[in-house]
Nucleic acid binder design. Sequence first.
DNA 1: AAGGTATATCGGAAAATCCCGATATCCCAA
DNA 2: TTGGGATATCGGGATTTTCCGATATACCTT
Lengths: 97, 97
Amino acid sequence: MDQVEIFKALSNKSRLEILNWLKNPELHFQAEHRNDAGVCVGIIQEKSGLTQSTISEYLTILKRAGLIEATRVGQWTFYKRNEEAFAALSKLIGSEI
Amino acid sequence: MDQVEIFKALSNKSRLEILNWLKNPELHFQAEHRNDAGVCVGIIQEKSGLTQSTISEYLTILKRAGLIEATRVGQWTFYKRNEEAFAALSKLIGSEI
DNA sequence: AAGGTATATCGGAAAATCCCGATATCCCAA
DNA sequence: TTGGGATATCGGGATTTTCCGATATACCTT
């Protein structure tokens, strides 16, 4: 758990927004674009207004930080939050840092 | 409470180290360099190995993010943690973000 | 008032981040 | 096996961050 990497991943308005969307996918994405594995890249990109390459990069940054997980299904990659990582981070800030 | 500003402030190894020192000043600094208002800049600088200007800037960054507080006493500025900010951040990550 | 000490601010070179367009890869369907 | 759609990676210009040395400001002492 690289603390600096995690905080860098969180140091961006767009990435925080994505994490917020992924917290309650049913509030932000139509049913056909989500499943148990999360939400596909394209629909996140569409909602964000940023380019496909930027969103793909941002999702990779969040994934490397351990904050989200990816599942490939056919041509789609679905991303969802790793809630355990957030719980651990919350605990870390409340005690260690 | 600007979330991005807070996470940016935390996105640096040296600043995390400073926050860690300030969490238990009695473990990291001699009694003559600390008081109820915190720890003075010079002793943090000495311990960090970074330059005076860099440490002053880093403390300002942490202060602007609301993570630490400054108290001027004579020619010294003492800095201490704002534990409420950390508690709020922990809570935020555990529920909102 | 003058000199010394502690801290803050300024100016800048190097490195990192932001976000893009172009291109590559992967996978499915025909 | 070829074409098309979804995602990942590459290369790069603009901006921000990192950390420094030099300088300014604040305060204390004499």
